[in-house]
């Protein structure tokens, strides 16, 4: 699965204290301020990218659900692929099963998530 909202995938420039770099009072003031603005810009960039990716994520999620149902559909009465194929693919589905389980749990409570992802105002 593609963790489209995973901020870990994107370069995160954390705030780094400027210890050891400050030889004067001015430097000790200026560098943290620069770092602060650098961090704001960095977070702005990440938020901006992730907001854009979230919309694509809606479609990715839908495709993932369909893929998981194709392989595991027999649990709910959907026709399955040949059993040897399903069994061969099953070990690769561990994470999908977990996520599928979590989505099944939240299936009746999707309105807010859709509004949160798509955005409306």
């Amino acid at each position: 699965m593609i963790p489209f909202k995973n901020s870990n995938l994107l370069p995160v420039h954390g705030f780094k204290p400027c210890t050891g770099l400050t030889s004067t009072a001015n430097h000790s003031m200026v560098l943290p301020i620069l770092e602060f603005f650098k961090r704001i810009l960095s977070d702005f960039d990440i938020a901006h990218r992730e907001s854009a990716a979230a919309l694509t994520g809606v479609e990715v999620k839908e495709l993932e659900n369909i893929f998981a149902l194709l392989l595991l559909g027999s649990f709910i009465g959907l026709p399955s692929p040949p059993s040897f194929l399903a069994v061969e693919l099953l070990p690769f589905m561990e994470r999908e099963l977990k996520v599928l389980n979590s989505r099944a749990r939240d299936a009746g409570d999707m309105l807010a998530e859709m509004v949160g992802t798509i955005g409306i105002g």
Partner: peptide, 12 residues
């Protein structure tokens, strides 16, 4: 779960 439930930095 790495997909829906995932922590993000507060500014992000």
């Amino acid at each position: 779960d790495g997909v829906d439930y995932i922590s993000a930095r507060r500014e992000v």
